[in-house]
Design a protein around this nucleic acid. Structure first.
Length: 487
RNA sequence: GGUCGGGUGGCCGAGUGGCUAGGCAGAGGUCUGCAAAACCUUUUACAGCGGUUCGAAUCCGCUCCUGACCUCCA
């Protein structure tokens, strides 16, 4: 098995050969969602990208421990120490307990992930389930002199840390510029330095989500949870840490600082960042009002959508772009992906009907090599997909009897489809023929075949056109009639 | 203002010095009772200007446009 995997590492801004520390084990940590509202499509892109990465690592034979957290506490509105907890705020709005909010949106998140056919992570820890680990870590950081307590809250001392470590290693910014250009925020008076960030925040009396600590009854800062949980499940120094690009400058920068201040080690060897989903060139976000909820996309119920698209179409659409590129969302782009995806799956459905010959008119070995080369080059799924369409052409040509294939090559084709279409890209057939409706359609198609055999084309056309109006498309071949659903 | 990206044919989107990306759309053809599908062939391209080079979409410089981050955000 070819394992010359190359990964782009944000730490070094270079593509590097992937060398896990303890092969075949791989530790992978990805920053998960904050479950105070529905995930939107942009969030989904990140998790689908890391699903591809996870799946390919598994395919290469690595034993991956994939940790993806659920943030269910700690976020403040506007990062002000006085701000409301997002969960408490949402709870007030929906007249629910904060933990009801957490439960509701965690379930919603899992439902969406399942629809997108992403594999569940090995461990999905929650921030509220790891308060004591976070407190322990804050203690360590204080012991090492990189944090200080004021009025029951604890802050990380960025200026002190940056004297011995490279605070802005992920973004390459100059600390002086940051000091000058960081916006003045209210509620920062008690911090020593304006770049300092909260590790522990003393709760105001009305604050519902609160825990005891050596400093005050309060709640943890946002960044510390990921550091504490990644450390607990993956150790001081694990292989890959990932997340959306928008997290690099703040969240990940602070994670690195906390982990180094605590453990004297850079927490991860490779940092991977996925790019944003855009709409009309601008980043999709809730505040901009251009965000789609996955369900809106599936059922087409949104002013910017002319129709709905299935989860697999959306997944395929996302995989047709590289994870480090922005991807622009549009109806036309989705339409194109929808047709491309159907074309791919139609060819896959023909696999078991192919007849072998004594020779092959194509070189499947070199296509196989190119598939691996594409994925080994920093998970280049668009190139992989272009190779798969090469295979689609071959499958269709064999089916049409225009190209010959040996039984051995057919086996390789079936294996490649299984490995890359299903295992790595994580696509699945949106089944239709197994259910009752499918049996009924099969029977109607059979009636039409009989009508055709009797040259009763009036009846056969009536059936074909009628089914089409109901969203079922027939395809006549020399030997049989197949059908598929259309949108 | 700072940091880091981008500008590729009608649309989406790969590609980083010479060799077809791919999908969708368009055109012609084959097949077919018709339709669809499929297959074959095929048109349209690298923001602008200058430079390096035998050769640049790809490297360098300048200009224009644009995005992300710097504030919670995948």
């Amino acid at each position: 098995m070819n394992k010359n995997l190359i990964i782009y590492n944000t730490l070094t801004r270079k593509k590097e050969s992937f060398k896990p520390q303890n092969p075949p084990l791989v530790g992978l940590y990805v920053c998960g969602p904050t479950v105070y509202s529905d995930v939107h499509l942009g969030n989904c892109r990140t998790f689908i990208s890391f699903d591809l990465i996870y799946r390919y690592l598994l395919h290469l034979g690595y034993q991956v421990r994939y940790v993806r957290n659920i943030t269910d506490a700690g976020h403040l509105e506007g990062d002000r120490d006085e701000g409301d907890d997002k969960f408490a705020k949402k709870a007030k709005l929906e007249k629910l307990e904060p933990m009801e909010i957490v439960q509701k949106y965690t379930i919603g998140f899992h439902d969406i992930m399942r629809l997108f056919n992403t594999l569940p992570p090995s461990i999905e820890p929650t921030a509220t389930g790891h308060i004591s680990e976070q407190i322990e870590m804050i203690k360590q950081i204080m012991n090492h002199g990189f944090a200080y307590e004021i009025n029951g809250s604890v802050y990380f001392d960025v200026e002190k840390y940056s004297k011995t470590s490279h605070y802005t290693i992920l973004t390459n910014r100059q600390l002086d510029d940051l000091l000058v250009n960081t916006r003045e925020l209210s509620g920062q008076d008690e911090k020593k330095g304006r770049l300092d960030f909260a590790l522990w925040i003393k709760a105001k009396p009305e604050h519902i989500m609160r825990w005891p600590s050596p400093w005050s009854i309060g709640f943890p800062g946002w960044h510390i949870e990921c550091s504490a949980m990644s450390h607990k499940y993956l150790g001081d120094h694990f292989d890959i840490h990932g997340g959306g690009m928008d997290l690099a400058a703040t969240h990940h920068t602070n994670e690195i600082a906390q982990s180094e201040a605590c453990n004297h080690k850079q927490p991860a060897k490779y940092w991977m960042h996925t790019n944003m989903l855009t709409v009309n060139g601008a980043r999709m976000s809730k505040s901009a009002g251009n965000g789609f909820l996955p369900m809106e996309l599936f059922n087409g119920n949104h002013p910017l959508l002319k129709r709905g698209y299935s989860p697999m179409t959306v997944r395929f659409f996302m995989l047709q772009a590289h994870y480090r590129s922005t991807l622009d969302f549009s109806n036309d782009a989705l339409d194109a992906s929808d047709k491309g995806y159907k074309r791919l799956m139609n060819a896959v459905a023909l696999l078991n009907k192919l007849k072998s010959s004594n020779q092959s008119d194509f070189d499947i070995q070199s296509i196989q090599e190119r598939c691996y080369a594409a994925m080994n080059d920093d998970f280049n799924s668009p190139i992989l997909i272009s190779e798969l369409f090469e295979i689609v052409r071959i499958i269709n040509s064999i089916y049409d009897g225009k190209v010959q294939a040996t039984e051995e090559d057919l086996k390789i084709i079936r294996k490649l489809i299984q490995h890359f279409v299903f295992d790595v890209l994580g696509l699945k057939e949106e089944e239709h023929q197994a259910d009752d409706m499918g049996k009924i359609v099969d029977w109607i198609v059979q009636l039409r075949t009989e009508a055709k055999a009797n040259r009763d084309f009036v009846t056969s056309d009536k059936i074909r056109i009628g089914l089409q109006a109901l969203g079922i498309q027939l395809k006549d071949n020399k030997e049989e009639t197949t059908w598929s659903k259309i949108n």
